[in-house]
Design a protein around this nucleic acid. Sequence first.
RNA 1: GCUGAAAUAGCUCAGUCGGUAGAGCACUUCACUCGUAAUGAAGGGGUCGUGGGUUCGAGUCCCAUUUUCAGCUCCA
Length: 656
Amino acid sequence: MKITLKDGSVKEYDSAKSIYEIALDISEGLARNACAGEVNGEIKDLRTELNEDCELNIVTNNTPEGLRVIRHTCSHVMAEAVKRLFPNAKITIGPAIDDGFYYDFDSDPFSREDLDKIEDEMKKIIKEGNELKRFTLPREEAIKFMEEKGEPYKVELIKDLPEGSEISFYDQGGFVDLCAGPHLMNTKGIKAFKLTSSSMAYWRGDSNKARLQRIYGSAFSNKDDLKAYLAHLEDIKMRDHNKLGREMKLFLTADVIGQGLPLFTPKGTKMIMKLQRWIEDLEDNEWGYVRTRTPLMAKSDLYKISGHWDHYMDGMFILNKDEAEGKEIMALRPMTCPFQYYVYMNDQKSYRDLPYRMSETSTLFRNEDSGEMHGLTRVRQFTITEGHIVLRPDQTEEELTRCVELCNYVMKTLGVEGDVTYRLSKWDPNNKEKYLGDESYWNQSQQYLRDVMEKNGITYSEADGEAAFYGPKIDIQAKNVYGKEDTMITIQLDCEAASKFGMYYIDENGNKATPYIIHRTSMGCYERTLAWLIEHYAGKFPTWMCAEQVRVLPISEKYADYAEQVAAKLKKAKVDVTVDNRSEKIGYKIREARLDRLPYWLIVGEKEAADGTVSVSSRFEGPEGTKSLDDFISQITEEIENKVIREEVKKEEEKQ
RNA sequence: GCUGAAAUAGCUCAGUCGGUAGAGCACUUCACUCGUAAUGAAGGGGUCGUGGGUUCGAGUCCCAUUUUCAGCUCCA
């Protein structure tokens, strides 16, 4: 038989050979690092006997596929350790996942101490170095085998497999698990692992079925990679906006105020206001928007016209439910659309008036499920840069393109354009009653969005069932530090709303015509954007968006007056500046300025006060030398006005 | 919403068998008047998330509730 290897070379053998033997034949080192074999594109166990011509790629332990094999084997080792320590635990399933593995057990909850004990037991098992041996049983015998072992979940899994099939098992020296593989040859192949957490999970993900205990862990081919992974997990925790944002005193929550209702401190508010003022000016002065200011609540009648009453009732806060008493039902708004429609309809529009672009810094209320709330990314009240563009159908492509361009400009200025992916959010054709409009409406409007992205060379994915109930969306998605994806910006096309509200314009022939509407955001909601910025910059924001841009540090109280003069001049130049006039040593003040992640701090003492200068230090370069105050002011105002994103000092790490 | 874990000073946390609350940082005051990542001393600060219950006695045990975190997508 001829084995064609990945590099194109060919090995010939007279008799059947296992993948492991072939790896050994090529080189001992390769065999030592081999995890599996890719045979004609399919991942196979190292034990697999090859007996006919094929293409073979030996999968080694530093590849993603190899790591999956290591992690899957590690999950079996963990299951064995759990069975040794907790004989009553029932095993269920234990797959490898993106960055590790888990195994679900039917048992009592595991504490961190339990996890440590399990880790120790796993180390013993790995040291024992048992071979993993694969064997198969006919389905009926396999069921009997697992019944005798007292593993009802495994029995259930086997019963789901087709009758007459051969069921594979792996025996790692006493502990036998039902498994399709592939696995390492020996438990010794696990060089580095860590159990990270435990949580609850349902049998087969069904909340009506048994509650299981899931243990998460990860494994690597060497200790350095594990160390780097654990350091990465620590870094993630440090960046987590929900922790860092509170630590930096940007926002807080209060039990008595309620879930999903964050409060912004002066510092957090200042940052949001900088973003808001920038966006409002940008839209109004450069992108042709007009600004509206509309109510935060309305009668239910409005939402009945818009369709929210039928399609979004669960997501709304209803203020007054006693209709029987003849009172009007009011609801807080979950969106701005119909309010702005009435602004549009206030006077008659000509085709020349379109596109009519309205924007509003709009506070919205959505009654999210209690378990869905998270930090600033999922809240019940939020403020969004929301706008609606009323346009003629022939303007659709141009206007959608402009929306995408504005978003790109905003993300580029925020410095986060590399974080995002585009998604075409479509309706769910199998669940039509959730949506307004028929199949041809959806196909057509989805095609509009697809065309715009393709013409603009945007790479995007498509997702069913992610559309708004009234139309498809271009969603600009970003992941948080834990890899969870959220929509940051959305652009939606709506060809139906106008006729429902009786919106029209007068066309060139003097006839009433129905416009299209684009629902869009330019920066999404401020809460979520702030969270994104905190995590992206790990709190080290570009100077222009910092709440405190400069701090003046007098060497001693003798120079307090000069420090105040410096600050006053900076304030006049619209720089956000404070003075640290405490009677502390300069080293102490510098340390605090650094820990507060300030862009700049100015040290002033005898020399500076005499010359009218400042000694500039920054987060970006460390000491930048002594400059005249005027020079520094022109430097920093230029940086702020142009929204420059200076690069951080690489070597500088926070000490704690 | 469901399941699990957690909640003690502004923050991070300790608090053993149920016996009346503790550290570091921060804060205040005083001394020091300092040149690029922590000066020293003293002091103030707590209905132990909230409401019930058990007990002679509850931060600790039980029940409810609020809030926070994790998971609820990965299927031998």
